Simulated assay, not measured.
Amino acid sequence: MTGLSEGSSGAPPWKQSNRMKAASLVALVVLMASLCLLSIAIGTRDVSWGEITAALQGHVNSIGEAAVAMRIPRTLLAAIAGSALGLAGAILQGVTRNPLADPGILGINMGASLAVVIGLAWFGMSMANAYVWTAIFGAAVTAVFVYTIGSMGRGGATPLKLALAGAATSVALSSFTIAVVLPRNDIAGSVRSWQIGGVGGATFDSIQLVIPFLVVGFVISLLSARKLNTLALGDDLAAGLGEKVALARASAGIGAILLCGATTAVCGPIGFVGLVVPHLCRLLVGVDHRWLLPFSALSGASLLLLADVVGRIIARPSELEVGVVTAFIGAPFFIWIVRRQRVRDL
Results as ranks from 00 to 15, higher is better:
residue 172 A to L: 12
residue 190 S to K: 13
residue 95 V to N: 09
residue 118 I to Y: 00
residue 184 R to M: 13
residue 163 A to H: 00
residue 75 T to R: 00
residue 10 G to N: 08
residue 170 S to C: 07
residue 223 L to Q: 07
residue 289 H to F: 14
residue 24 S to T: 04
residue 81 A to H: 04
residue 4 L to R: 07
residue 199 V to A: 08
residue 337 I to E: 03
residue 88 A to Q: 10
residue 337 I to N: 03
residue 269 P to A: 01
residue 216 V to R: 01
residue 163 A to D: 00
residue 78 A to V: 06
residue 62 S to C: 14
residue 328 F to K: 01
residue 27 A to S: 15
residue 46 D to H: 08
residue 263 T to P: 07
residue 336 W to C: 11
residue 331 A to C: 08
residue 179 A to I: 13
residue 20 M to L: 13
residue 311 G to P: 12
residue 228 L to D: 10
residue 245 V to G: 09
residue 255 G to K: 11
residue 260 C to L: 05
residue 224 S to Q: 09
residue 145 F to K: 01
residue 108 I to C: 09
residue 30 V to C: 12
residue 66 A to I: 07
residue 130 A to D: 07
residue 3 G to A: 13
residue 12 P to E: 05
residue 73 P to V: 08
residue 321 E to S: 15
residue 69 A to W: 09
residue 192 R to V: 15
residue 106 L to P: 01
residue 280 L to Q: 01
residue 228 L to H: 07
residue 205 D to S: 14
residue 48 S to G: 13
residue 298 L to I: 13
residue 37 L to T: 14
residue 325 V to Y: 09
residue 90 A to T: 11
residue 125 M to C: 09
residue 166 G to S: 03
residue 340 R to Y: 01
residue 46 D to W: 04
residue 169 T to P: 00
residue 271 G to I: 04
residue 225 A to E: 13
residue 135 A to K: 06
residue 234 G to E: 06
residue 298 L to Q: 06
residue 254 I to W: 08
residue 288 D to I: 08
residue 120 L to N: 02
residue 154 R to G: 08
residue 278 P to M: 12
residue 62 S to F: 10
residue 103 P to R: 02
residue 243 E to I: 09
residue 286 G to T: 12
residue 181 V to W: 02
residue 342 R to C: 01
residue 128 A to P: 02
residue 187 I to P: 05
residue 193 S to N: 06
residue 240 G to N: 10
residue 238 A to W: 03
residue 251 S to F: 10
residue 168 A to T: 14
residue 321 E to L: 14
residue 127 M to G: 09
residue 70 M to L: 13
residue 4 L to N: 04
residue 139 A to E: 11
residue 286 G to S: 10
residue 330 G to T: 14
residue 257 I to R: 01
residue 48 S to V: 06
residue 35 L to M: 15
residue 325 V to W: 08
residue 262 A to I: 12
residue 340 R to V: 04
residue 291 W to L: 07
residue 342 R to H: 01
residue 69 A to V: 13
residue 162 L to R: 05
residue 113 S to T: 12
residue 281 C to A: 12
residue 296 S to Y: 07
residue 48 S to M: 05
residue 79 A to Y: 05
residue 127 M to N: 08
residue 264 T to L: 01
residue 261 G to Y: 08
residue 273 V to W: 07
residue 278 P to L: 12
residue 310 V to L: 15
residue 282 R to D: 11
residue 122 W to K: 09
residue 191 V to H: 05
residue 279 H to W: 05
residue 4 L to W: 05
residue 291 W to E: 02
